[in-house]
């Protein structure tokens, strides 16, 4: 039987995490009655992630424009540079890179914060004060992650395609015509692409927030346990993002 124990352990973990998610979802309507708590968390997961998202978005747009130009110019299709940048960003890189950065920046912080609250008896102290920590601590953080991700992914994409990213390199540096940069993007992209990006980002946001609060809440109440929860939040979220991205892309391609 002992060789089965890794399997049963991971099944148990999955079951526990799923029940935890259901518990959180059950408290979400109540959490909206106290928007202040959500606003506070939007600050720490959203506003504090803004700089890293803006900078990374710009650089990824610039790199994509440089690389794309080198290839496209061989086919005499340099004017399609905008399309290349915009489609790669909106369909793939925008949501995925934002999610990976979000997992590293906000997910790990979330897990560490909740883990530390547990290790210092703050969660159990709340319970003894007849306050449900899931409602008071977990749900607002979960909701904030869910709201912040699509917004961050949109900001990332806007930066990557727009003035500071691909546009700066393509139009200002490499001399692609400004009009054709935008009009080609206009022709190739549809509202559907944007909607797909927002769906992807929201799903990733859900996955990261879920993993982070679960890892934090179930961390061993020691400094080692907290550090392990932080690490596994980043590792598990990153893998989950890439796997989910494959599934979602497959669905969206039909």
């Amino acid at each position: 039987m002992s060789f089965l124990s890794p399997l049963t352990d991971s099944l148990r973990g999955l079951g526990r995490a799923s029940l935890f998610l259901l518990t959180i979802i059950a408290t979400i309507p109540g959490a909206f009655l106290r928007p202040r708590l959500i606003v506070q968390q939007l600050y720490s997961v959203g506003v504090l992630s803004l700089i890293i998202i803006v900078i990374s978005g710009s650089f990824i747009g610039m790199v994509l424009a440089l690389q794309g130009y080198r290839t496209l110019v061989n086919f005499g299709a340099a004017s399609s540079l905008g399309v290349l940048v915009a489609l790669s960003i909106v369909r793939e890189l925008g949501p995925v890179v934002t999610a990976l950065l979000f997992a590293g920046r906000a997910g790990s912080a979330l897990a560490a914060e909740i883990g530390l609250m547990k290790a210092t008896d703050q969660l159990s102290g709340m319970e003894m004060m007849a306050v449900d920590p899931i409602k008071r601590v977990i749900a607002p953080r979960f909701i904030a992650g869910l709201i912040a991700m699509p917004l961050l992914a949109s900001i990332f994409s806007m930066m990557a395609i727009g003035v500071a990213g691909g546009h700066a390199i393509g139009v200002e540096l490499l001399g692609v015509d400004d009009g054709s940069y935008w009009s080609q993007i206009n022709q190739a992209m549809h509202g559907r692409d944007i909607a797909d990006m927002l769906i992807k980002a929201t799903v990733f946001g859900l996955a990261i927030s879920w993993i982070a609060v679960y890892q934090g809440y179930h961390a061993a109440p020691t400094s080692e346990g907290v550090s392990r929860a932080t690490t596994s939040t980043v590792v598990v979220s990153s893998l989950a993002i890439l796997a989910l991205d494959f599934v979602l892309t497959a669905f969206m391609f039909h």
């Binding site: 806007m158 992209m189 509202g191 944007i194």
Partner: peptide
Amino acid sequence: VLTFRVAS
């Protein structure tokens, strides 16, 4: 911006 400027 993405919906109106970038997409058609």
